[in-house]
Nucleic acid binder design. Sequence first.
DNA 1: TCGTTACGTTGGCACCGTCAACATGAGCGG
DNA 2: CCGCTCATGTTGACGGTGCCAACGTAACGA
Lengths: 205, 205
Amino acid sequence: MWALSTSPRGPNAPFHHGDLRQALVEATTGLIERDGPASVSLREAARITGVSHNAPYRHFPTREALLAAVAENGFRRLRAAFEEAAAAPDDRLLALGQAYVRFASANPGLFRLMFGGDVGKDAHPDLRRAAGEAFALLREAGAQGGSDAPREAALGAWALVHGLAHLVVDDQLSDDLREDAADGRLLERIVQVFGPRTAGVRRRP
Amino acid sequence: MWALSTSPRGPNAPFHHGDLRQALVEATTGLIERDGPASVSLREAARITGVSHNAPYRHFPTREALLAAVAENGFRRLRAAFEEAAAAPDDRLLALGQAYVRFASANPGLFRLMFGGDVGKDAHPDLRRAAGEAFALLREAGAQGGSDAPREAALGAWALVHGLAHLVVDDQLSDDLREDAADGRLLERIVQVFGPRTAGVRRRP
DNA sequence: TCGTTACGTTGGCACCGTCAACATGAGCGG
DNA sequence: CCGCTCATGTTGACGGTGCCAACGTAACGA
């Protein structure tokens, strides 16, 4: 899905790259998905992009900053997925949850980077902001659930979906379950037997 | 909580350490809690333990094997916590969930190592076994929930608690929520508005 | 046209994981 | 009690990594 070489950049390429920053983010995204966030290397990203091992430092002060940019990009993509899911005519909250798990299944490495705690949102405010914007839709949909304890209900829903996504990306589920999780069926089944306790929330009777 | 130096081992310590393997596991556990699983170094663990940088290789074929041993130890401790919680007279499943979140709150680094996917259970069967044994109690308690879809109910309960634990260790919760999560109150409140939909699952009312 | 400056390169440092060769001494057969 | 064996620990080396410092290149505005 992710081409590791964004632009080969032959031996007599121009001195200036053009958009090295974006190229590095894309190359790193590919590396993360291939090797996991822990073993991604600044130097290899540079190699793939076709620049010297120190060029990245003109755009990112540190390796973690590069990873933060990749994670930030991930949160933007997650928000786009949420927006698409929120347009669904049926159960909006379920659709958002399914989008969440689907995103994690499709980009396990990226998901682990975004939520693995290796980047540290405190040191990267832009990352925190992007994450907050991604979850705005989710909070909004959770708040209008009609529960008498909306805070707890929303948190429970988030925890349930977040946990399911983690079980997928950390490979804790059997193959068939992982498959069912990826396309949303598993979450649908879970929600049928396990959800807000308040009255009349059974969707699609 | 974890002393980083297990035994200073002065300059004229005996050639043989005695129980280097265990000492390395303990030192590494401390390092993980201090710096996170990603930035723990074999050489520093050796330094702390007071041996040369290559001594660990007599006990662990690779850095990942050392981390796997630490994670395995973590699963044993988690199982002990489960056993203690299962003795609770009240709601056993809730008590197990609270123990789960409490363990994560008390050992965030270790929890991230155990579930972060950086170790890979496939390559370390002992780790997989220890994890399975830790969850035996949880599965058992989940199965006797009396739901008409026990598989989905148990998975939902696991996902909810697992997700809540991840939200804690990955620092996604506000301070007061994290505190409430650590001592089990938050999970109790969540379960009151969000739980199995089937009737009569409240044990010992 | 020419200087400023953003962007990229070369070279070096300390640290890391890992391999190979060697040193030590605990434990056992005699 | 001696001496051998071999598990355990040490020294030294190699390539790779993140990052720093110094330098080259060319895009662009005065």
